[in-house]
Computed example of a mutant assay.
Amino acid sequence: MNLAEAPEPRCTICTRALYADEIGRYACHPCARRCDEQLLELAGPRGLYAKLGSRLAPGSGSGGPAVSGSRTAPVPLRLDVLNLLTAGGPVLGPLETWVRDWEARGRAELNEAGTLQQRVNHAVSTLRFNLEWAVANHEAFDEFAREIHLMHRQCAVPVAGERPPRAIPVTCPCGAVLRVTLDTPKVSCYGCHTQYGHSEVLRLPVAERRAAA
């Protein structure tokens, strides 16, 4: 291939052209720094994961008073928040999956001992310690960064009392209507089983109202 025709190296996350000091990396410095900051904000006693415990009561975090004044969250609990706090939920589960992946490459060590908070802290610390290695060597760093962004967003929404992102109906070429949000990392079409990544699913046409009904 003619060198003049070689594709310009780009960040796999924001897709901008890489600067000279970023060549050989899978992500630009700003995208890698954003991923590191989001990991940092998840862990610790004042992190987003720890703050979720105070958002279990219906009505908490919405700007108004909590349903109950007791220290124990009333029943029913906010199941969306409770799910975020479970061992196999969308926070600790993916974090430890990535630690296992990096462990297989000799760059991390999984520790499933201790409380869920301690496991989150350990996973975040391990991933942050090896982040620069991953940016330069892990071919799926873009997938990793998008999953970190998603779990950060999922934790930040209830903590800040925001409404969850609105679902948008889009149409797969097979005719199936998929409901996605701007935070959807990937989705599998139930009609034809096509796998769509984040950017791919957002390029699908918005479904007509009669199709989305």
Rank of each mutant, 00 (worst) to 15 (best):
D183E: 15
A87N: 03
L92A: 12
G114F: 11
G64E: 14
G88N: 14
A17N: 06
C31G: 02
A213Y: 08
R55F: 09
N130Y: 00
L92D: 02
H152G: 00
V157D: 13
A145R: 08
V120A: 12
A140F: 08
N2F: 04
A43F: 03
N130Q: 14
Y190C: 03
E96L: 13
R179Q: 11
R179I: 01
A17S: 14
R16N: 06
V75C: 05
D142E: 09
H138V: 02
T184N: 06
L204T: 08
R210H: 10
L40F: 15
A212Y: 11
P90M: 10
W98C: 00
A43C: 13
Y26T: 00
V206F: 07
T184G: 10
C155L: 14
Y49R: 04
P74E: 01
L77Q: 12
L150M: 10
W102A: 06
E22M: 11
T115I: 08
L48I: 02
V75G: 02
V67W: 13
Q38T: 03
G24F: 07
H198Y: 13
P205H: 10
F141D: 00
S62H: 04
G47R: 05
P30W: 07
N111F: 03
T181R: 11
R163A: 15
L85E: 07
H152L: 01
L95I: 06
G89H: 09
A87E: 14
L204A: 05
R46P: 00
E5S: 13
G175R: 09
E96P: 00
P45S: 10
H149T: 12
L178D: 01
T12K: 14
T12D: 11
L84M: 12
D101C: 12
T15C: 04
A136Y: 01
E103L: 01
R34E: 11
A4M: 10
I13G: 00
G106M: 06
R119K: 12
L18Q: 07
V81S: 06
S125M: 08
K51Y: 02
L84C: 05
I13V: 15
R146P: 00
T115E: 13
R10M: 06
R71Q: 07
A27P: 09
Y196P: 03
R100G: 04
C172T: 08
L85N: 12
S54K: 08
T126H: 01
P7Y: 12
C192G: 02
L131A: 00
P65L: 09
P90W: 04
P30V: 00
R105G: 02
A104R: 15
A156W: 12
E5T: 09
G44D: 04
A145K: 02
P65V: 08
V75H: 13
N2D: 14
G59M: 06
I23W: 05
R105L: 15
A134N: 04
A167H: 10
K51C: 12
P164K: 03
R78P: 10
V81I: 14
R55M: 15
M1C: 05
E22R: 05
H122D: 10
K186C: 05
A6Q: 09
T12N: 06
P9V: 09
N83A: 13
V67D: 05
E8K: 05
P185M: 01
T72S: 14
G161V: 07
L92H: 10
